[in-house]
């Protein structure tokens, strides 16, 4: 039962966080939304019984990509231009 709820809720949450990441003008907030999307995606891989891909996604997508994007934002500027 709880697996059915997760199978229904997680893709919707992934799409919602992806749209939020596109809509934010503040790039740091958009990066945090992207990290949340990666974490939910790794949870989705885990409940689809692919733990290898889940570990890789959690390590690369949610941690290293966020670090690289935050470092890049710190070196350039924070707000997106209109």
């Amino acid at each position: 039962m709880i697996e059915m709820i997760l199978h229904a809720a997680l893709p919707i949450l992934i799409v919602v966080t992806a749209i939020i990441a596109v809509l934010f003008k503040d790039l740091v907030s958009a990066t945090i939304a992207l990290a949340a999307m990666s974490l939910l995606l790794s949870l989705e891989f885990y409940i689809l019984q692919a733990p290898d891909v889940a570990i890789a996604e959690a390590g690369v997508g949610a941690c290293l990509t966020t670090a690289i994007l935050i470092i890049s934002i710190k070196a350039t500027k924070r707000m997106e231009d209109e």
């Binding site: 733990p51 290898d52 570990i55 890789a56 390590g59 690369v60 290293l64």
Partner: peptide, 10 residues
């Protein structure tokens, strides 16, 4: 589960 790439990423 896991391997070289996953553990290296961690």
């Amino acid at each position: 589960p896991g391997g070289g790439f996953q553990g290296g990423a961690v």
